[in-house]
Structures are given as C-alpha cells and as structure tokens.
C-alpha cells in the first residue's frame, strides 16, 4: 500500500490575489470580494452563469477549484477527485444575511436563493456539479486550519482507493475577510 502522497498543485486566494503554486497569477486592487470574484470570472474566461447565483463562500471555493481542476479534470477519465474542505465560520456569512431578511416581521420575505446556501458543504456540491464529480466529499468546521487532519483524511481516501486525487484545504469566508488555501494531493 502506498503510504506517501504528494501535493502536486496548490492555490491560495487572499486579499484580492490569486497564487498558483506560490506564484502570483492574478491581482486586483481595492475591490470588494464580489468585484474581485467577477474580475476573476472574466479574466479566466469562465462561462458558468450559475456562478453569479452562488454565495461568497461558494464563489471563493469555486474559483480556487477552477484554478486547480481545469487541467486535472480534462486528464482524468473517471473524474474521481475527492473534495475535502474545512473552515472556521461555516456558512455564517450567508446565515447572517438570511437572518437579516427575516428579522423584520413587517417586511418578511425570506429568500429561497439565499436559504439554499445556509450550509457550508453547498460549495462542495457546486464544484461537483460543475466538474461532474460523483466522488467522496466532506466539509469540516474547525477553530483553526488543521492541515494535519486534512492530510490524514486525504491520505486515507487515496490509500483505500476511494479517490485517485484529493482536492483539499481551507476555505474561509466571513464579512469580506477570506482565505482559500487548496491543494491537489495524489
């Protein structure tokens, strides 16, 4: 049984900057996350209108995954890439927005489109739909980025042949503060 697996690619998105394998590949200045996300969408020629319906956590996870998966999936006949993510704030950014929409009893119009994103693992579903993945997936909520746990979880999936590659890492978003740090392990 293979015991050693390696990180073959990485992507980090923070403060309106995208790094691919630690090299800066895109940057905007002074934008909100929404504006930054739209710029990335255009810059990378993504054609997926459903992107604009996603909440911010899903947009962040989706964009980091696009950077890492676009080439991987083409080469991967079975698309057997597991998704294992974690963060600290779960879907709190969207939870707060939804709560605000139902606070006023005189103006009570809860949005179904916001409500569907009040779970963190919806972002995993969005990526799976985009890339036609029917693979293993999990979303954990930790106080801090627990890379040891994620490495062990990814290794277990690969050793037990539950996946041929694992896209894993930290995807945190709350109130315009965000960090995506994802890796391809194989």
């Amino acid at each position: 049984m293979k015991s050693q697996f390696t990180i073959t690619n990485s992507c980090k998105i923070e403060s309106n900057i995208i790094f691919f394998n630690e090299e800066k590949i895109f940057e905007t200045e002074g934008d909100s996350f929404a504006e930054f996300a739209k710029s990335v969408y255009k810059k990378f020629g993504i054609n997926y209108p459903k992107f604009f319906k996603m909440d911010n956590l899903s947009k962040l996870a989706f964009l980091a995954s696009e950077v890492l998966l676009s080439e991987q999936i083409i080469a991967e006949a079975e698309n057997n890439v597991a998704l294992v993510f974690a963060n600290r704030s779960s879907s709190l950014d969207t939870d707060v927005k939804f709560q605000q929409s139902i606070d006023d009893k005189e103006n009570y119009y809860p949005s179904p489109a916001v409500f569907v994103y009040t779970l963190p693992n919806i972002c995993v579903g969005e990526i799976s739909i985009k890339h036609q993945l029917k693979s293993e997936n999990a979303f954990f909520v930790f106080e801090e980025n627990n890379e040891v746990f994620l490495t062990q979880y990814a290794t277990s999936l690969l050793q037990n042949k539950k996946a041929t590659k694992v896209l894993c890492g930290w995807v945190e978003y709350f109130d315009e503060s965000y960090l995506a740090k994802l890796f391809i392990v194989e």
Binding site: K53, Y109, P110, P112, A113, V116
Partner: peptide, 12 residues
Amino acid sequence: IDALELIVLLDK
C-alpha cells in the same frame, strides 16, 4: 429555486 424567488417577487 428561481421559481421560488419569482413567487417571492410577486408577493413583495
């Protein structure tokens, strides 16, 4: 989900 949003839009 869009259909549900349209129902909300008609009401609101």
